[in-house]
C-alpha cells in the first residue's frame, strides 16, 4: 500500500470501522444531535448523558465511511468521563489537527489515539468525514438538533 494511503487507513481506523465502540443509542439522553454530510451521505447521531458537567456516557449510530465511522467511535471512547469543557478543548485541537493547523508533533502526540487521524489533512475532501461526529457532538452540547458539514 502506498504511504499516504497507509497514513489515512491505519489499522486502528480499519479496526474501529469494523467493530465500532459505543455504537448504540442512549435513551433517554440529556443531549443529542444529528449530523449530515450530504456530499457522501454520511449520517451520524450522537447521544450524550451529561451529569454535573461530566460526560457520563456518549454513543453514536448512523452510517458513514470508514473515516467518519471510526472517528465517531474513537471520539466516544476518548470523551467518556471528560468534562464538557475538556471535550470542547479536544474538539478544537482535533479540528486543528485534521485541517493541518496543528502541526506541533508533541501536541499531536498528546491527543493520544486521536492522532491516528492526522493523515486526513492530506485528503482535504475527507476532513469533513473525520470531523462530522465532532461537529455533531459540539452541536449536541449546544442543543442544536441538526448539523451539516456542507
Amino acid at each position: 500500500m502506498n504511504e499516504e494511503l497507509k497514513e489515512i487507513y491505519q489499522q486502528v481506523i480499519l479496526d474501529h470501522n469494523k467493530s465500532p465502540r459505543n455504537f448504540r443509542k442512549i435513551d433517554p439522553s440529556t443531549h443529542s444531535s444529528e449530523g449530515l454530510n450530504p456530499l457522501c451521505g454520511d449520517h451520524v447521531f450522537i447521544y450524550l448523558d451529561i451529569q454535573d458537567g461530566v460526560i457520563a456516557d456518549i454513543s453514536f449510530d448512523g452510517n458513514g465511511c470508514a473515516i467518519s465511522k471510526s472517528s465517531a467511535s474513537i471520539m466516544t471512547a476518548e470523551l467518556k468521563g471528560k468534562t464538557v469543557e475538556e471535550a470542547e478543548i479536544i474538539f478544537n485541537q482535533f479540528h486543528d489537527m485534521v485541517t493541518g493547523k496543528l502541526t506541533d508533533e508533541e501536541e499531536i502526540e498528546n491527543l493520544g489515539k486521536l492522532s491516528v487521524f492526522q493523515g486526513v489533512r492530506d485528503f482535504p475532501v475527507r476532513v469533513k468525514c473525520a470531523s462530522l461526529a465532532w461537529h455533531t457532538m459540539h452541536a449536541a452540547l449546544h442543543s442544536e438538533t441538526v448539523v451539516t458539514t456542507e
Binding site: 502506498n2 457522501c40 458513514g64 473515516i67
Partner: peptide, 12 residues
Amino acid sequence: VHPHDVGTIMDM
C-alpha cells in the same frame, strides 16, 4: 466498504 473510501483509494 463505503463508497467514499472506494473513491479515495481509487483516486490514489
